[in-house]
């Protein structure tokens, strides 16, 4: 429920949220590389992909600024990578990275399964969201790759590690949040008191 004509303050806060999302995404991407590099299937595709879970959290909590932040974070990671992708592929990959969970959010919103404040969000809806996001993310990334590199791409082989990596990453991140909630609540109560 943000104002229809955003004030400068709202724009600044949204930019701040985007920047935070980008930073968190990059940090978790690097952490995932450090922890699970031995499970890497291809550059940027891992059988356990914790940033996949973070995408779910960032887009559900932050909405559009979260999606934009993830896209910016992905762009930064691509620019730092050893092999620079062609500009078109890089831009589309970044958009797919940030906006695939956002499109799922919008789609579920249109089907009255989610509302913008997440008041209807239950554990089942959350798992439904994760599954849909993982499907859309894997298909969009691999389709973009196939479009740019054609027959060299093994779309039906590469789509599975990405899908499974995103699902496992999301489940790990969400259960890590579940386990840390009591401590988080204690911290919040202390900061309020």
């Amino acid at each position: 429920m943000t104002p229809r004509n955003p004030t400068p303050e709202v724009l600044v806060q949204s930019a701040l949220l985007s920047l935070t999302a980008a930073l968190l995404f990059v940090v978790l991407f690097r952490l995932n590389d450090f922890l699970f590099s031995f499970l890497q299937h291809a550059p940027g595709v891992n059988w356990v992909f914790l940033p996949g879970g973070f995408r779910v959290m960032l887009v559900l909590i932050l909405g559009l600024p979260g999606a934009f932040g993830i896209a910016v974070g992905t762009l930064w990671l691509n620019l730092q990578g050893q092999e620079l992708l062609p500009t078109g592929q890089m831009v589309l990959t970044c958009l797919a990275s940030g906006f695939s969970p956002w499109f799922v959010k919008v789609w579920m919103h249109k089907r009255h399964q989610l509302d913008s404040d997440l008041q209807k969000l239950s554990a089942v809806t959350l798992l439904h969201f994760v599954a849909l996001y993982a499907v859309l993310n894997a298909i969009s990334h691999q389709s973009i790759r196939w479009f740019f590199i054609g027959t060299q791409s093994r779309i039906w082989l590469d789509v599975w590690p990405m899908f499974i990596g995103d699902v496992i990453g999301a489940v790990v991140v969400l259960y890590a949040l579940k386990l840390s909630l009591p401590s988080l609540r204690r911290l919040l109560q202390k900061s309020v008191n």
Binding site: Q119, L126, Y175
Partner: peptide, 20 residues
Amino acid sequence: SPLANAYLRFLQLARAVDAL
């Protein structure tokens, strides 16, 4: 504000995550 919205959505997400 976007920050207030984000916090309220976090609380809703926390409720759903708790029920996993």
